[in-house]
Design a protein around this nucleic acid. Structure first.
Length: 553
RNA sequence: GCGCGAUUAGCUCAGCUGGAUAGAGCGCUGCCCUCCGGAGGCAGAGGCCACAGGUUCGAAUCCUGUAUCGCGCGCCA
C-alpha cells in the first residue's frame, strides 16, 4: 500500500520536473509514514519540507505543485496539505478491503518478504559452555536468537541457527576435575573441593552416574587421564541436557559447531598463520599478540600464551574465519551483555580478515532478574544455586517464558515475575494475546454451528465493513509486513511483541463493541472475513516468537 | 581512571532511525455482563522525555558537556 503510494508520488514528482513547476531535478528519497493522529490521514509525507531547501521555495508551494501533478486515482480519497507542509493522504476504503483479501490469500506467508533474498546470514546464540545446565539468562539469549533468526527468515534471508560448543578450553579440564573430586568424595576419599571448581549439585549427580556405570575405575588410572576422560564424559552429558532443554523451549538449531573441531582440523593454526602473514601479529614476552589496536581496540590481545597454549580469542579468530569461509555475508552473535567489552576485539578480527566490521553484528542480551510476586529470587552462579531454564519452563510454560523474554529490547534489563507469567488474566500479556486468537477461533466455531459460511478468499462482500474500528483493524493489519521487516533490519524482535499487544487490544475492543454474528448475513460474513484476517496475522506473529496460537484455552 | 550502555507517567517499559497534541501495561479512581468465552471492554487522573548548550523549518530521537546508575577493563572462558 505504502509502496504503491510512493510510486504515485515519484511519478508526480517527475511530471513536475517535466512540466517545469519544480526544477531541482533530483528525486529525493520519498519518506512516507503513518501519522500518529488519524485526523492526519492514512499516510503522510514530509517531502515538500525536505525539498524546500534545494527548490528554494516554500514547502506549501511545493506541496501544491505535487498535488496538482498527482494522477487521478480512485484509490486516493483525499489529499491535503497540513501544518508546516505535510501532505496527508487518505485512501479509499476499498484499498483496505484489498488488504484483507491479500492476507487470506497469503495465509501463513502474509508478512514474509523478499527483502533479504539471496543473502546468507547466521545467528549464533546460546553457545553456553557445556559445564552446567542452561540458566534463565541463557533462556533469554535463546528466545532472542531464535526470534531474530525467525524474523530474518521472514524477511527473506537465508538463515542458519548455530550453537558454538566451547569444548576445548580450560573449562573442560575444570569440569573433569570437579567431577573427579566429587567422584572421590562419593567413594569416601577425603578431598577438598576448591572454590574455582563447579559447585553445582549437577556435578555430584553426574559423579553418581559415573560410579553406577564404572564403579571405582577412575581411582586407579592416572589423575590427568581421569580428568580428561571425565571432562569429556561430563561435557557430553551436559550438552545432551542442553539439547533437551532447548528442544523443550521450542528452539531448533541447524548446526552445533565444536570448538575442538577447529583444533582437530588445524583451523586454529591456519587462522594464526593467516594473521601473521598479514603482519597483524607480533611476539612479546614470549606470547603472540594480535594488533587489535589497529582496528580501534583499547589494547592488543594475546593469541598464544607464553606457555604455548592458545587463548579462547585464537579460537574465535578461527571460528569467524570459518564462518565467512562458508559464504555467510552477515554473522550475528548473541551474547550476554557482560561480554560487551569483547565486541571491539572481535570486530577487529573481522576487519583483520578483510571484512567490513558491519558483517559482524553482536546482539547484547541484558540480565534477567527473576522475581516472585515482585520479590527478587536469589540466584548466584558461584554457589551453584541458580535457577535453571528447565525449572522455569516447567513452572510457567514455554510460551509465557518466551513471550516475556521478548517483551523488552534485548539490551534493556528484564524483570521476569514468575507469578505474573502464570497468571491467567489481563495482567499477563501472553494470555491477553493468545486469548485474542482463541476468541476469534471461538467465534468462527459458532459461525459454523449456526451454518454461517465464512467466505472464501476473494469471495467476501466487504462493503458492509464501514465502521471506524473495522477500517482501523484493516489498516493495522496492513502494517504487519513492515513491522516484520523493521524487526529484521534492526534485529529487534520485541517490535513483534508490541505489535501483537496492540492488535490483540484492537480485536478485544472490537469484540466488546460489536457483535460479529448479527442478523444480517452479509454483515456477519464480512466481519467473519475480517476476524479471520486478524487470526492469520496473530498466528503468524506468534509463530515468529515461537509462541503457540491456541484455538482454545 | 578508561571504555561501553542507560536516564521517558507512582512502577515496568515502547517510541517505527528527525515530524504534527509523547504512548502502552501495571497500580489508582469511576463505570460496562438479557452480549459470539469477563482470561474482556470504556472513561479519568498522572510528563520540564536527567540537566545545560548546540545542529535546523522541526529534537525524546543527532552532536558536545555535566550528573546519576549499571556493566566491562587477565597471557580466564
Amino acid at each position: 500500500m505504502k509502496d504503491r503510494l510512493r510510486q504515485q508520488i515519484q511519478a508526480a514528482l517527475q511530471s513536475c520536473f517535466d512540466a517545469g513547476t519544480l526544477h531541482s531535478g533530483t528525486v529525493p528519497e520519498v519518506q512516507i509514514e503513518v501519522p500518529a493522529n488519524p485526523d492526519h490521514g492514512d499516510f503522510s509525507t514530509n517531502l515538500a519540507m525536505t525539498m524546500a531547501r534545494v527548490e528554494k521555495k516554500a514547502p506549501r508551494q511545493i506541496a501544491e505543485a505535487l498535488i496538482a501533478a498527482l494522477a487521478e486515482s480512485s484509490s486516493l480519497e483525499r489529499v491535503e496539505i497540513a501544518g508546516p507542509g505535510f501532505i496527508n493522504f487518505t485512501l479509499a476504503a476499498s484499498c483496505w478491503y484489498e488488504v484483507l483479501d491479500e492476507i487470506v490469500l497469503k495465509g501463513a506467508d502474509y508478512g514474509r518478504s523478499t527483502f533479504g533474498q539471496g543473502h546468507k546470514v547466521q545467528v549464533e546464540f546460546v553457545s553456553a559452555n557445556p559445564t552446567g545446565p542452561l540458566h534463565i539468562g541463557h533462556g533469554r539469549g535463546a528466545a532472542t536468537g531464535d526470534a531474530v533468526a525467525a524474523v530474518l527468515a521472514a524477511a527473506g534471508y537465508d538463515v542458519q541457527r548455530e550453537y558454538y560448543i566451547n569444548d576445548a578450553g580450560n573449562q573442560m579440564r575444570t569440569l573433569g576435575l570437579s567431577l573427579l573430586l566429587r567422584y572421590r568424595q562419593l567413594l569416601d576419599v577425603q578431598v577438598e573441593f576448591p572454590k574455582d571448581c563447579y559447585q553445582g549439585e549437577y556435578v555430584v549427580e553426574l559423579a553418581r552416574e559415573v560410579i553406577k556405570a564404572e564403579a571405582g575405575r577412575y581411582l586407579e588410572i592416572p589423575e590427568e587421564e581421569a580428568i580428561k576422560a571425565l571432562g569429556r564424559y561430563g561435557g557430553g552429558c551436559i550438552l545432551e541436557g542442553i539439547r533437551d532443554d532447548l528442544e523443550a523451549f521450542g528452539v531448533k538449531l541447524d548446526n552445533w559447531f565444536s570448538e575442538q573441531g577447529l583444533f582437530d582440523r588445524g583451523e586454529v593454526d591456519a587462522g594464526l598463520r593467516l594473521l601473521a602473514e598479514k603482519g597483524l601479529t607480533y611476539e612479546q614476552d614470549g606470547a603472540v599478540w594480535f594488533r587489535t589496536t589497529d582496528f580501534g581496540d583499547d589494547k592488543d590481545r594475546v593469541l598464544v600464551r607464553s606457555n604455548g597454549e592458545t587463548t579462547y580469542f585464537a579460537s574465535d579468530v578461527a571460528y569467524h574465519l570459518e564462518k565467512f569461509g562458508r559464504g555467510l555475508e552477515t554473522v550475528i552473535d548473541v551474547w550476554g551483555a557482560d561480554h560487551h567489552g569483547y565486541v571491539p576485539r572481535l570486530k577487529a578480527v573481522v576487519a583483520g580478515l578483510g571484512r567490513a566490521p558491519e558483517d559482524l553484528q553482536v546482539i547484547l542480551v541484558q540480565l534477567v532478574s527473576l522475581l516472585r510476586e515482585g520479590e527478587p529470587v536469589a540466584m548466584s552462579t558461584r554457589s551453584g544455586e541458580f535457577i535453571t531454564l528447565r525449572e522455569v519452563i516447567e513452572e510457567v510454560g514455554k510460551d509465557a517464558c518466551r513471550f516475556f523474554f521478548l517483551t523488552r529490547r534485548a539490551d534493556s534489563q528484564l524483570d521476569f515475575d514468575l507469578e505474573l507469567a502464570k497468571r491467567q488474566s489481563n495482567d499477563n500479556p501472553v494470555y491477553y494475546v493468545q486469548y485474542a486468537h482463541a476468541r476469534v477461533c471461538s467465534i468462527s466455531r459458532n459461525a459454523v454451528e449456526q451454518k454461517i459460511a465464512i467466505p472464501e478468499q476473494g469471495q467476501a462482500d466487504l462493503s458492509t465493513l464501514t465502521l471506524d474500528e473495522e477500517l482501523a483493524l484493516a489498516k493495522f493489519l496492513a502494517r504487519y509486513p513492515e513491522t516484520v521487516l523493521g524487526a529484521a533490519r534492526n534485529y529487534e524482535p520485541h517490535r513483534i511483541v508490541y505489535y501483537l499487544q496492540e492488535l490483540a487490544a484492537q480485536l478485544h475492543s472490537y469484540y466488546n463493541r460489536q457483535r460479529v454474528l448479527v442478523d444480517d448475513l452479509a454483515t456477519s460474513q464480512s466481519r467473519l472475513y475480517l476476524i479471520r484476517s486478524v487470526r492469520i496475522v496473530l498466528a503468524n506473529a506468534l509463530n515468529l516468537l515461537g509462541v503457540d496460537a491456541p484455538e482454545r484455552m
